[in-house]
């Protein structure tokens, strides 16, 4: 464990709390892509199901349980409690175009051709693209509530912090996880445009608005 990874994970935790706070205080899930949130459930369940047969550490266990539980809870809030506030007509990214290629990639690139390892690879590839429906929605509406942009910034920071973590681990432990690193670089790159607008508007106290 190094500080980059710790702060990355904490940033990930923070993003979930920001999202829950947004839904609770505005009593609405407006501006949040259900498809992205559903993909995160798929990602966490397929990757963290190993808590049933693998013990890494208490930290690892608690975090995994939290991410599975919180992502399912967010889905429940969106689908049941605050259902009327979700507008499927703007959440139109075609998820099937992501899942198919990711499944194919997982079958080709994995560390062992076993069910759990292919599932792990799938979750890595899927996570790298899971934010796309959300970014697509942002692009469509052209604006976002400030709290939603903080959620995305925390999520993007988590991914960005994993990069120095990998560099650190390469020098301190001499290991590289090529699948996680490749997918992680792609995932972080997807946030580039968002971060540009975030830093030039929200951080300066303005509303997040994309140029027409």
């Amino acid at each position: 464990m190094n500080l980059f990874r710790l702060f990355g994970d904490l940033s990930h935790l923070a993003s979930i709390f920001i999202l829950l706070h947004k839904i609770r205080t505005t009593r609405s899930c407006r501006g949040i892509s259900f498809k992205t949130q559903a993909l995160y459930v798929a990602v966490f369940v397929s990757r963290y199901l190993d808590i049933l047969w693998e013990w890494v550490s208490l930290y690892n266990f608690v975090m995994k349980v939290f991410f599975i539980a919180s992502s399912c809870f967010i889905l429940y809030l969106m689908k049941m409690k605050y259902r009327p506030t979700h507008d499927p007509s703007i959440d139109t990214f075609r998820v099937e175009f992501l899942v198919g290629p990711c499944a194919l990639l997982a079958l080709i690139f994995n560390y062992k051709f076993t069910f759990t390892e292919v599932l792990w690879s799938l979750s890595i590839f899927l996570e790298s693209l899971a934010i796309l429906p959300q970014l697509f929605m942002l692009q469509r509406t052209g604006e976002a509530e400030t709290i939603t942009t903080h959620y995305l910034a925390a999520l993007g920071a988590y991914r960005a912090l994993y990069i120095p973590n990998w560099i650190y681990r390469y020098f301190s432990e001499g290991v590289v996880d090529p699948i996680a690193v490749t997918a992680g670089l792609v995932q972080t790159a997807l946030y580039a445009d968002f971060f540009y607008v975030y830093f030039t508007t929200v951080i300066q106290g303005q509303k997040f608005e994309l140029p027409a």
Binding site: H12, D50, V56, S57, N60, K64, W120, G174, V176
Partner: peptide
């Protein structure tokens, strides 16, 4: 150099 065993990251 390739880490192929065990997934300790989240």
């Amino acid at each position: 150099v390739w880490k192929v065993e065990g997934h300790d990251e989240l």
